[in-house]
């Protein structure tokens, strides 16, 4: 059986995603990055929220947690702080992460907690069949934007960087080798890492906006992507309506759970004799 398949709960495949949906491709990229790093499967914990993308964790052979809509990062914070030795990964969608989950996203980034967040951005709410999301480009159609989306969308990577994430990268379900490289480096960053993967939703975004099938959608995405290194030497107007792919920020900083670990050590040194806490009543409760 292939090395790659050993990371999956194969009895639960094929997965539920539509033919041509990009979520499978991004999930595969994550698994390939984990395989390259040779992470211990028993020390990896993958947490997700609600939505098409969040069903990914059910197929992965790790400790996996499929939580409430928008709350994956908050659940993951509890896991990371309770077990800083675990490699904690969050798989989330554009709606799950930046709409209902936006508050937890910016705070996890601010704290620089050791969590790698993979945002599978198909620019729509797929599970609920095609409403616009905070990442849907202005002007596009959604079942709740029948006359065109009048809202501006986030630049998720700028948002992550501004909130304090110490590794930020973007790729797409077309640029898979780049996506794997970014995830690999994100997993190695000892802090809050964000990798956005722009991906195709042929069933809803594609159909509603008459962008064709999965392949045509992938080409549509490819045509909007400009590598950050190339963009540096391109005239500004050429970048109009494009988004950057590649490593967008890499500024390591102290990781939150490690900082708290040092706090514990410092406190325990200064309270030598206190085994059971203020009321000695916890002394035998280890």
């Amino acid at each position: 059986m292939s090395e790659f398949l050993s990371y999956f709960r194969q009895d639960r495949l094929p997965h539920i995603w539509c033919p041509g949906c990009g979520h499978g491709t991004v999930t595969g990229a994550l698994v390939r990055a984990i395989d390259r790093l040779g992470l211990d499967k028993n020390k990896v914990c993958v947490v997700s929220g609600i939505g098409c993308s969040s069903r990914a964790v059910g197929y992965l052979d790790f400790d996996t947690l499929h939580t409430a809509h928008g709350r994956a990062l908050a659940f993951a914070t509890g896991i990371k702080m309770a077990r800083p030795d675990l490699k904690v990964i969050v798989m989330t969608g554009d709606g799950d992460c930046t709409a209902i989950g936006g508050n937890h996203f910016i705070h996890a980034a601010r704290r620089n907690i050791g969590i790698t967040t993979i945002v599978m951005n198909n620019e729509t709410y797929g599970m609920t069949s095609g409403q616009f999301s905070p990442m849907t480009p202005k002007g596009m159609l959604g079942t709740t934007a029948p006359y065109g989306n009048v809202e501006r969308s986030f630049d998720l990577c700028e948002l992550a960087k501004a909130a304090g994430a110490t590794y930020v990268g973007r790729s797409t379900s077309y640029h898979v080798p780049l996506l794997i490289d970014l995830i690999e480096k994100a997993l190695q960053n000892d802090g809050f890492s964000v990798v956005e993967a722009v991906t195709q939703c042929p069933t809803y975004l594609g159909r509603k906006n008459k962008l064709g099938d999965a392949v045509q959608l992938l080409n549509w995405i490819k045509d909007q992507a400009v590598n950050v290194k190339a963009a540096a030497v391109m005239p500004k107007e050429k970048l109009e309506g494009k988004f950057l792919i590649g490593e967008l920020h890499n500024g390591p900083a102290p990781e939150y759970s490690a900082e708290y670990g040092e706090l514990i050590a410092r406190v325990q040194r200064s309270f030598e004799n206190v085994k059971g806490g203020l009321w000695e009543c916890a002394s035998n409760s280890d």
């Binding site: 400790d63 409430a68 908050a74 659940f75 914070t77 509890g78 702080m81 309770a82 077990r83 937890h104």
Partner: peptide, 10 residues
């Protein structure tokens, strides 16, 4: 959410 995550680690 965080205490549920922590409880899951034991």
């Amino acid at each position: 959410a965080a205490i549920i995550g922590a409880s899951l680690t034991g």
